Simulated assay, not measured.
Amino acid sequence: MKVFGLAGWSGSGKTTLTVRLIPALKRRGLSVSTIKHAHHAFDVDQPGKDSYEHRQAGAEEVLVSSANRWALMHEHRGAPEPTLAELLGRLAPVDLVLVEGFKQEALPKLEVWRRAVGKPLRAPEDPQVVAVASDGPVPETDRPVLPLDDVEAIADFVVETCGLAGKVASGKERGAA
């Protein structure tokens, strides 16, 4: 399972790019999963739902299942936040896992950068940033710069960087977007 990160400041477009990148990679015949780091308290459960009541009662884990999907909620209950490696170990095997956030992790990353956000480029300080995707000119960098709106070129870059070219379906099999 290959792992590739998307990093950048809040508001730079990481999630938008991730959401556009997933189908581009799937058209290439790759199986893709994602891990998204949340920087603040979040909840996927709602008060009044049975699963919420189970968690509030003290269950360590609650697994909710239907004909369409299942979801596992694990309560830390004071335990440390799991590492990226631990989270990756919980995923079913796929060709590629896109990781959004986890900027301190040692994994190849694409920095999503927009001048309009008003924050500095991270690439000069992070040797794990292998390229930058931007909607305009980028301050001096020795990393490749990809147009943020060219999702197909970014998908090709990710495939090449992760050594997945041998797994990619031919253009004929990919079909139109």
Rank of each mutant, 00 (worst) to 15 (best):
L91N: 08
N68W: 02
E105A: 14
A116Q: 13
S33T: 11
G11Y: 10
V44R: 14
V64S: 10
P120T: 05
P93I: 03
K119A: 12
L84H: 06
I22L: 11
T16N: 08
L17K: 10
R122C: 01
Q128I: 00
Q128A: 08
A92W: 05
P124N: 09
E100N: 11
A67M: 12
G89I: 10
V97P: 00
I35C: 06
R122L: 13
W113K: 03
I35L: 14
G136T: 11
L91T: 11
E53C: 05
G78D: 06
S33D: 02
R115E: 14
M73I: 15
H39Y: 09
V32Y: 01
L121N: 02
T18W: 01
R69D: 15
A85E: 15
R28C: 06
L91A: 11
Q46L: 09
R28T: 01
A71M: 15
L25T: 02
P80N: 02
L91W: 06
K26E: 13
R27Q: 09
A133V: 06
V94F: 00
D95T: 00
V94W: 00
V130K: 00
N68T: 15
Q104Y: 07
S12T: 05
K109L: 06
E61W: 05
G89F: 11
E81K: 05
P124S: 05
A41E: 13
V117K: 08
S51V: 08
V64G: 12
T15K: 09
K36Y: 05
W70Q: 15
P93K: 00
W70P: 06
W113Q: 02
L96N: 10
T15H: 10
T16V: 12
S33L: 03
L110D: 02
L72V: 15
R55D: 09
A116F: 13
L88W: 07
S51F: 03
L84A: 03
V99D: 01
F102S: 12
A24E: 13
S10W: 01
L98S: 11
D45L: 04
S33V: 04
E81M: 09
E86Q: 15
R115M: 07
F102L: 12
G118L: 03
S10P: 00
K36P: 08
V32C: 06
L63E: 15
V64T: 09
R27N: 05
W9Y: 12
T34S: 10
R27Y: 04
L107I: 15
K49L: 08
T34A: 11
E53T: 13
G13F: 03
P93F: 01
G8L: 01
R20F: 02
R115Y: 09
E61P: 06
S51L: 09
L72H: 10
P137C: 08
G118E: 07
G11V: 10
E111F: 13
E75Y: 03
K36H: 08
G101A: 12
S10H: 06
G58L: 04
